[in-house]
């Protein structure tokens, strides 16, 4: 890989951002625990939970679509696991299976509606954001007469599936392991398989992609299933970690995931980007979120940083992308 090709990579801006933010907090809060192993694991875990979503949201964004319902899906999938296990006494594997099944079915429905109606996915998934959150609240209250199901540790401790979704193997939170694995897999899929090439084509110009034989609808629906499934994965990890599920869990996560993907250099209109960029975007947000805490600045200010970062990142990425397109020969 030559230098020029390296400079044209979509994640370049976010890499610079991560180094800058890391440097800033290391300088300002390095002696207050930001650089300690605990501090590092702390922001890595926050980044990982967001990064799980950012990986699939990036793929979908490159394919030219949004999924605003992933946040609601976190709450829904959590309940789809917690209610059957805690209330109806299902075995854990069945509860986890149901959570993923609900997610896959709803993701497929999202994708099908977008492909079939031709409406912007922004609108379709905005509708699912409300419907899914409302349905989760409605069903949960109807079945349990509360909005929270807790005490799951009683059922999950000692279950053979528990080590896959909870604990800290080798001292690192399980979510970080999943984040790294999912990012590597999605990145491999994007850059090294025919399906990945189709993702770029579908996002770049669906008509042109269709004209050369790319199954545009299938690619999109598959990716909507993927975003919903990654939300379910995060929900399962959270439920097993905290031992509870809450109908409000995951609120606004969809916007944070989109922010991470955009900071990572993914083009909002599709056709350009990378999964590693989305992961760096998540890392950046995780670092800022936890870093502020170490500096002693009131964490109320986090969202100010988030918004400013987002704007700065998009401007930088736009500039870099333009440079890539006017590359001399």
């Amino acid at each position: 890989m030559n230098v020029r090709r390296l400079l044209a990579r979509p994640e370049l801006g976010s890499l610079a951002g991560v180094l800058l933010v890391f440097g800033f907090f290391a300088f300002v809060a390095g002696d207050r625990g930001f650089l300690s192993a605990r501090g590092t694991l702390n922001y890595l875990e926050v980044a990982a939970q967001l990064g799980l979503l950012a990986a699939t949201v990036s793929l979908l964004m490159i394919a030219g679509e949004f999924d605003l319902s992933v946040g609601s899906m976190i709450g829904a999938a959590g309940m789809a696991l917690a209610i059957p296990v805690a209330i109806w006494g299902w075995p854990m594997w069945a509860g986890i299976g149901l959570a993923f099944l609900v997610a896959a079915a709803f993701g497929a429905l999202n994708g099908y509606l977008v492909v079939r109606t031709g409406l912007p996915s922004f609108i379709v998934t905005l509708a699912s954001l409300f419907i899914l959150r409302g349905a989760t609240l409605g069903f949960t209250r109807w079945i349990t007469s509360r909005t929270r199901v807790s005490g799951l540790h009683e059922f999950t401790t000692g279950d053979p599936l528990a080590p896959f979704f909870s604990g800290d193997p080798l001292g690192i939170p399980i979510s970080v392991w999943w984040w790294v694995a999912l990012t590597l897999f999605a990145s491999y899929l994007l850059f090294r398989t025919p399906f990945g090439n189709w993702i770029f084509g579908v996002g770049g110009d669906p008509k042109a992609a269709h004209a050369v034989g790319v199954p545009v609808a299938r690619v999109k629906i598959t990716l909507f299933i993927a975003t919903a499934m990654s939300a379910a994965l995060l929900a399962v990890i959270q439920v097993l970690d905290t031992g509870s599920a809450d109908v409000l869990r995951g609120e606004l996560k969809e916007l944070e995931a989109i922010a991470a993907a955009v900071i990572g250099g993914n083009l909002l209109t599709g056709g350009y980007g990378s999964v590693v960029g989305g992961a760096l975007g998540a890392l950046l947000l995780g670092m800022v979120k936890q870093g502020i805490f170490f500096t002693g600045i009131n964490t109320d200010w986090f969202k100010v940083f988030l918004g400013t970062l987002l704007l700065a990142a998009v401007l930088l990425n736009n500039y870099l992308r333009k440079k890539a397109l006017e590359a001399p020969r």
Partner: peptide, 10 residues
């Protein structure tokens, strides 16, 4: 086709 030939960002 004139307009569907290539995808510029790829």
């Amino acid at each position: 086709y004139q307009d569907l030939a290539m995808i510029p960002l790829m």
